[in-house]
Design a protein around this nucleic acid. Structure first.
Lengths: 101, 101
DNA sequence: AATACACTTCGATACATGTCGAACTGTAAC
DNA sequence: GTTACAGTTCGACATGTATCGAAGTGTATT
């Protein structure tokens, strides 16, 4: 019933930490915009594509994408030279329901 | 339509930063548990009361409560010797709807 | 093999953050 | 006024984080 057991709190805090900077939040929300309501989300964007959203060095973007991936928010996989990123829809649902009142 | 304008992103990142540690997230979620669905949330807890949820020094708790308050997540007001805290229900609604897919 | 592109890792820098104990402040009780 | 309680601020310490350029790595093209 309650959302708040210890494991949940720590796991969720990790996710909110990953979303606590404008850079990562913007990227994450951009990837979620690809998800139409009720549909499975399988639209992917490559990292170079996402770079256009933010005004930071490629190395910094790489750090941020790694942080989102390590927090479980974003999936990444190589497609030739490029790396494709997509929202982890399971985690997105988890976030979506977390503050339900 | 889109959740993601610049002001929104920065303002939300501030809130997620405030919720990015287990201590503050736990306190915030504890305060939200006082909110029944559909009802206005006017249950308040004093800081000493919240202290029982976490195993940190009173000074550290004070820092965390200040962070939650400055992020706009929690309202605080003095009631005699004690300080009463409650969730900002407007912001809670904002968080609740933010990841809607 | 050499070259190009996409992205990552390294190392450095500057700043931010979470913790504590001691000292302080605001309110209440006597 | 003094004492007690509830909570805050100060200062210090240790660790974490965001940024960058340079160097490196993986894949594709020639």
């Amino acid at each position: 019933m309650s959302n708040c057991n210890t494991m949940d709190i720590e796991a969720m805090a990790v996710k909110f930490k990953a979303l606590s900077t404008p850079v990562r939040l913007k990227i994450f929300m951009e990837l979620t915009q690809c998800c139409s309501p009720g549909a499975s989300c399988d639209v992917e964007r490559c990292i170079g594509d996402l770079a256009s959203l933010v005004d930071i060095a490629p190395s910094t973007l790489s750090h941020h994408m790694k942080a989102l991936n390590e927090a479980g928010l974003v999936d990444m996989q190589r497609d030739g030279k490029r790396i494709l990123c997509s929202v982890n829809t399971k985690v997105l649902k988890q976030l979506s329901g977390y503050f339900n009142i």
